[in-house]
Simulated assay, not measured.
Amino acid sequence: MRGLIVEAGQADSAQLVDDLPEPDPAEGQVLVRALAVGICGTDREIIAGEYGEAPGPDGRLVLGHESLGRVLSDDSGRWQPGDLVAGIVRRPDPQPCRNCAAGEWDMCRNGRYVECGIKQRHGFARERWRTEPDFAVGLDESLAEVGVLLEPASVVAKAWEHIERIGARAAWAPESVLVTGAGPIGLLAALLGSQRGLDVHVLDRAESGPKPDLVRRLGGTYHTGSVCALPFEPDIALECTGAPVVIANVISQVGPNGVVCLAGVSSGGRPLSLDVAELNKEVVLENNVTFGSVNANLRHWEAAAAALAAADHDWLSSLITRRVPLTDWRDALTHRPDDIKVTLTF
């Protein structure tokens, strides 16, 4: 069986192999034929050897955590052959913490969880994979061409759920949302903001290419330049760049009772001069909240599937800027200026 693997922790060790064994039944009762996997920065970082943990002593890790496939068989009887599904990435730790035991494995407290294609469990970049019945998520048949977006959409669905939970602390009727960063996470965040009837604004560095048009097609406003130059104070902000200067400016820009969700991961390395006292005063006096969010649990995956089904499928398809055959995986991993989401197809 063919699959894309790395030697975990070894830089530039990625290779396409054809000697993978069939998925171990211990991985789950549901056997799935792969249709596509999405490529993101996490995959590139694992290939660079920055992190990634193999499930076994041979050091091999099958890549791929953004999945789409069709069920071949299910010994549990829950799923039928031909069903369109994606596999949930994270699994709770074997001796579950309080959150993992409650199905909130995205909020694991002890860090012993495993993640497909990332940490101690093989991923989905292979011709066939297995999952437990409760960790497969069904997709509407209309999403057969774009369902690979479900994993990043689940991350956004969780972020929006937490934003709304925090906002409910007061009489809150948000009207506007600012999204910084127009990558897949940012654009899907904008989509879910649009579905909530909010005035959507997206800020990104790109002055041309597909991103401005994608935002306009949502009914949103596209911005370039500095956050501080924006002529309004958003009620909600989703920061998806991880850039320190942008983070600080977003926290400062949000309006009274505002909620800021940090969904981008910073690479670090560059010191930032920041008046923490002034920023603290703004946050305290305006009752603002800033929080971080990552990963997703089952209800977020299901909410994301519903959001994708309700979206304009042509718009979703436009997010996938390149569909690359598995045999050309090196090309898929080479970032191009106009890339938004690149997928490997099987």
Rank of each mutant, 00 (worst) to 15 (best):
M1I: 11
L4M: 15
Q10P: 05
S13N: 03
A14Y: 12
L16Y: 00
L16S: 08
D18V: 03
P25A: 08
A26H: 08
C40V: 13
G41F: 03
A48Y: 07
G56R: 06
P57V: 13
E66P: 04
L68C: 04
R70E: 11
D74H: 02
D75Q: 14
D83I: 01
V89N: 01
R90Q: 10
R91S: 13
N99R: 04
C100V: 12
C100T: 08
A101N: 11
A101D: 00
D106E: 00
C108D: 03
R109Q: 15
G111K: 02
Y113N: 05
E115F: 01
I118V: 15
Q120I: 07
R126P: 14
T131F: 02
E132V: 05
L139F: 08
L139Q: 03
L149P: 10
A153E: 14
A153C: 15
S154G: 06
K158P: 08
E164H: 13
S176L: 03
T180Q: 08
G181P: 13
A182T: 01
L187P: 09
L188S: 04
S194V: 05
Q195Y: 05
R196G: 07
G197F: 05
R205Y: 01
P212N: 05
R217E: 02
G219C: 10
S226G: 14
S226A: 09
L230Y: 06
P231I: 08
E239Q: 09
E239S: 07
V245F: 11
V245D: 15
I247L: 08
N249V: 12
V250T: 14
S252I: 12
P256C: 15
P256I: 13
G258A: 03
V260R: 00
G264F: 00
G268T: 06
G268P: 15
D275I: 11
V276H: 09
V284A: 10
N295V: 14
A306N: 07
A307N: 09
A307D: 08
A307G: 04
L308Y: 01
A309C: 01
H313P: 02
S317T: 14
R322M: 05
V324Q: 13
T327R: 07
R330T: 13
A332R: 00
L333N: 04
T334G: 09
D338Y: 11
D339F: 01
V342M: 09
V342G: 03
V342H: 08
